[in-house]
């Protein structure tokens, strides 16, 4: 319940913030002419789109976390042992995120050669993470914690599964960028390079965010 109250508080804060920002105070019938908007975001549309999507994901995982906590309060909850493998997987994902961050900083440079390896490493580490999660699933089912044994188990599979699906979605975009990177970068037009830079940037943002979500989920799974 506490978490849902937090949600409520966040919502109210957001509303107050919206009402306080000065733009909404302007009287549009007074100012005429080609007014320049103060403080508007000057980002490429895909970046804004990504951030909006991240807000949707936040709502999705936030609600899962709330439900997880509420369900955990019922007496039939039997926590399951968290496989040690999860620590290893977490390390993989962190490294993946770091690799992508490196790819991002390389992509700012004029020469894109260094991009190949860091981008590929990041993706491969993530694939490693996903395989690690699969192995963790098998370990758990092997030791008798099936999907339907207890809601705690069901939640474990559900949360890791949904998180994994989101990573898979990210890997799709990573794969497309990666193909590009391994192509003949030198021949690309300015627009293509800009597009590639943007893809790498967006991938890194998405990865960091999913890493954050994983850390929170992991903490949640550990805490019960």
């Amino acid at each position: 319940m506490n978490i849902s109250l937090l949600f409520v508080a966040l919502g109210v804060a957001l509303m107050v913030w919206c009402l306080l920002i000065s733009q909404l105070q302007t009287k549009p019938w007074v100012s005429k002419g080609l007014v320049q908007e103060q403080g508007a975001v000057s980002l490429p549309a895909p970046r804004v789109g990504l951030w909006v999507f991240l807000a949707v994901i936040t709502s999705l995982f936030g609600l899962f976390a709330v439900v997880y906590n509420m369900r955990a309060e019922f007496p039939d909850w039997r926590p399951l042992p968290d496989p040690n493998l999860l620590w290893f997987n977490t390390a993989l994902l962190i490294l993946g995120s770091i690799a992508l961050q490196r790819a991002r900083s390389v992509s700012e440079k004029p020469n894109l050669d260094g991009l190949k390896w860091s981008l590929t490493t990041g993706g491969l580490l993530t694939i490693g993470f996903l395989f690690g999660q699969l192995i963790a699933w098998r370990q758990l089912t092997g030791s008798g914690y099936a999907f339907t044994t207890n809601p705690a188990d069901a939640f474990f599979y559900l949360l890791t599964g949904i998180h994994g699906l989101h990573l898979l979605g990210g890997l799709w975009f990573w794969a497309r960028a990666n193909l590009k990177v391994w192509g003949n970068v030198a021949m690309y037009s300015i627009e293509e390079v800009a597009h590639l830079r943007l893809s790498v940037q967006l991938c890194s943002v998405y990865w960091h965010y999913l890493l954050l979500i994983w850390l929170i989920l992991f903490g949640l799974l550990l805490s019960t």
Binding site: L24, T26, P28, G33, V41, V48, V52, V56
Partner: peptide, 24 residues
């Protein structure tokens, strides 16, 4: 809806014509 919604929000935020402020 999510695919459509991403579009609507981003378009309103990013693709307004010159001079089309939020309060216009």
């Amino acid at each position: 809806f999510t695919m459509g919604g991403l579009n609507y929000v981003t378009t309103v935020l990013q693709a307004r014509a010159r001079g089309m402020t939020l309060m216009r």
